[in-house]
Amino acid sequence: MSERLAVLKTYKLFIGGTFPRSESGRVYQVTDAKGGWLANAPLASRKDARDAVVAARKAFGGWSGATAYLRGQVLYRVAEMLEGRRGQFTAEVAAGSGLSKAKAAAEVDAAIDRWVWYAGWSDKVAQVAGGANPVAGPYFNLSTPEPTGVVAVLAPRESAFLGLVSVLAPAIVTGNTVVLVASESAPLPALSLAEVLATSDVPGGVVNVLSGRAAELGAPLAAHRDVNAIDLSGADAELARELEVAAADNLKRVLRPRPGTSWTADPGPERMLALLETKTVWHPTGSLGASGSAY
């Protein structure tokens, strides 16, 4: 009996909850660590990036307006789905990054655990980052964190799955929506993650995944006026500088790459906080009655 011929997967972009091919019709070859062909990935274009921003903006109101509890539930659901696909992700990570099966499995496990860790933050971050301010006057004064808006994320080039989760989850758990540019050389885990997101109650447009050239996609995203922040984790120093200059056009919040970041270390809340705005609301309190002081 001849060996069964495997069914190969066509990897697609993920924009607004659907899986289109690149509007450019282009693909590029994704190879394993030794240069062997793994798959063709869509080579997304500026127009795909633009469509992704439109989808992310459209999703922002609903996602940021959802209760923190619901966002936590949705993120936890993602972790459940990931758990069910451990094997697939382990194989993709191993093939794409040349890790041993055991090391790849460990990275996938760490990524799922990190996703769960961030899911739990949804309804705690406001308590840690916000609070009442004891102003010197008859006013109730409260500061609360709010999501920045649409965030463009250049996923780390290395650590294609744990690194990816470590930049994506903190952005969306607080209510931001994301246009994610997958690791150029190892995009498959990101494209597969999109399939998980599509089946885990994450509203369409909250996460949009593009694969292709970081420089080609980063430029229009950094300059896009309807993008509020950009995470440059996946940019090298020169690209990061160029994109930061472009991002200044509408004063985007910029997360610079931190070379040497250990994705396995405890991340702390910093990445969430960096993509939050602080809103401070004042209201008079005064006294219950009209006692009113004299002159």
Binding site: P284, G286, A290, S293, Y295
Partner: peptide, 14 residues
């Protein structure tokens, strides 16, 4: 009538 605003205006005139 917002009490704080009213009292602040009266105080400012003072």
């Amino acid at each position: 009538v917002d009490a704080v605003g009213l009292e602040a205006r009266a105080a400012a005139l003072g």
